[in-house]
Each structure stands twice: as structure tokens, then as C-alpha cells.
């Protein structure tokens, strides 16, 4: 769901650019206070993995494809601010080096996939975790649901931005975007749950590193 140049009007991309820049600034400040030895290599690995996984489009219904986003994965492992930084790093490189997502839409893409996908996704995961505490499948269920919701919410935000820009009416964009991404979200939820399950089985201590 990387928005290209031309889909958003001036007021929309400038506003979202400012909001995202502010939140990335906050995340940088918070990370500079809290980052520990263990976080640094994980930042690198997480960003590299998410970039690689985002290249792997899988087919969903009707000649459409989707790919893993990774916001919830990064944020559950590293925390909401570090998760936002990982997503912003990936999105900036995709935009500047690979022409995936427009430069004017970069703020919107960071907002949708970093702020909603990683930060909000993290808080959804934490809230679900609280409700489900004690369930033996808690990690799988919470990460699947948070992953699925993160995609559907990010796609819905994208639809709202397109509507505010006057590109397409909200009544057309919202059901279309939420609909197709509720299918793509199944892939997101599964990959998020499987990778987190694998990582925490291999290295249970990573469950306890400080979430930044």
C-alpha cells in the first residue's frame, strides 16, 4: 500500500509529512535515551528482514497481490518507538532507492505503516495480551489479530487520505481498500505470529528486553 506521488493533494501530504516527522522525532529522542546493547543489532536485523519480506508479494483473490508489512512484528519485539524507526528506515530507502512510494507521499506512508502499523499495532497487541492473559496460545492469537488489524487499519487510513485529497470518494475507497486488505491481513497475521513464535522459542530472553 505504498502511496505513489500524485495520489495525495498538497494539504494532505504536507500535513501527514509534518505529523510523521514529529512522531519520528519523538521516537528518535526516546530511542536515544533508552536503546541498549541488545537493541542495536536487532534494529538492523528487523529492518533488513522487513525490507526483504516486503519484496515477496503473494497472490490474493482476483489477480491482486499483497505483501507482508511488518509493523507489529518490529514493534512487539522492540517497542512502538523503535518499531516506528524500523518502518521509517525501510520506507525511506524504498522511496529514495527503489521508487516504491512517492517522495511527497513519504509522510503518509510512514504514518500508515509506521504510526498506525507499528505504534498503534503495538498497543492493540498489548491490550489483547492483557485480555487474553493465561491462555496458552496467547502469543499466536494476539500477534495474529494485531497483525491483521494493523493492515486493515493502515489501508483504511490510506482510503481516508485519498478521499480527503479528492482522489476518490470515501464511500468507494474505504470498502475497497479495507476489503482487499482484510485478505492480505490474513497473511500479515500468520507471518507475524509464526516469526514471533519462532524468535521467542529460539531466544525467550528477547521477550523481556525493554520495549522502546
Amino acid at each position: 500500500m505504498h502511496i505513489p506521488d500524485g495520489f495525495l493533494d498538497l494539504k494532505t501530504w504536507v500535513t501527514l509529512g509534518a505529523v510523521s516527522a514529529g512522531l519520528v522525532g519523538y521516537a528518535l529522542k526516546r530511542s536515544s535515551r533508552k536503546l541498549g546493547e541488545k537493541h542495536i543489532p536487532l534494529l538492523g536485523v528487523m529492518a533488513a528482514f522487513i525490507f526483504a519480506a516486503q519484496m515477496l508479494n503473494f497472490p490474493v483473490a482476483g489477480g491482486t497481490s499483497g505483501h507482508f508489512m511488518g509493523g507489529v512484528l518490529a514493534a512487539v519485539l522492540l517497542g512502538p518507538s523503535a518499531g516506528l524507526l524500523v518502518m521509517a528506515t525501510v520506507l525511506i530507502v524504498q522511496c529514495l532507492v527503489f521508487q516504491d512510494g512517492g517522495l511527497t507521499a513519504l509522510g503518509a506512508n510512514v504514518f500508515n505503516m509506521g504510526v498506525i502499523g507499528a505504534m498503534l499495532g503495538y498497543y492493540i497487541y498489548v491490550a489483547l495480551n492483557r485480555v487474553m492473559r493465561g491462555n496458552p496460545r496467547v502469543l499466536f492469537i494476539c500477534s495474529f489479530v494485531a497483525g491483521w488489524l494493523s493492515i486493515v487499519l493502515a489501508a483504511s487510513a490510506c482510503a481516508v487520505e485519498l478521499a480527503i485529497s479528492g482522489t476518490v470518494p470515501l464511500g468507494v475507497a474505504l470498502p475497497a481498500m479495507a476489503g482487499v486488505h482484510s485478505l492480505i491481513g490474513i497473511g500479515e497475521g500468520l507471518i507475524t505470529a509464526l516469526v514471533l513464535g519462532f524468535v521467542f522459542k529460539l531466544r525467550p530472553d528477547l521477550l523481556d528486553i525493554e520495549k522502546i
Partner: peptide, 10 residues
């Protein structure tokens, strides 16, 4: 990887 258009492109 699938060459189909992604969700937003579709």
C-alpha cells in the same frame, strides 16, 4: 514474488 498489482494498485 507475485507480479499482480498490490491492494492499493488494484
Amino acid at each position: 514474488a507475485s507480479r499482480f498489482p498490490d491492494g492499493l494498485e488494484r
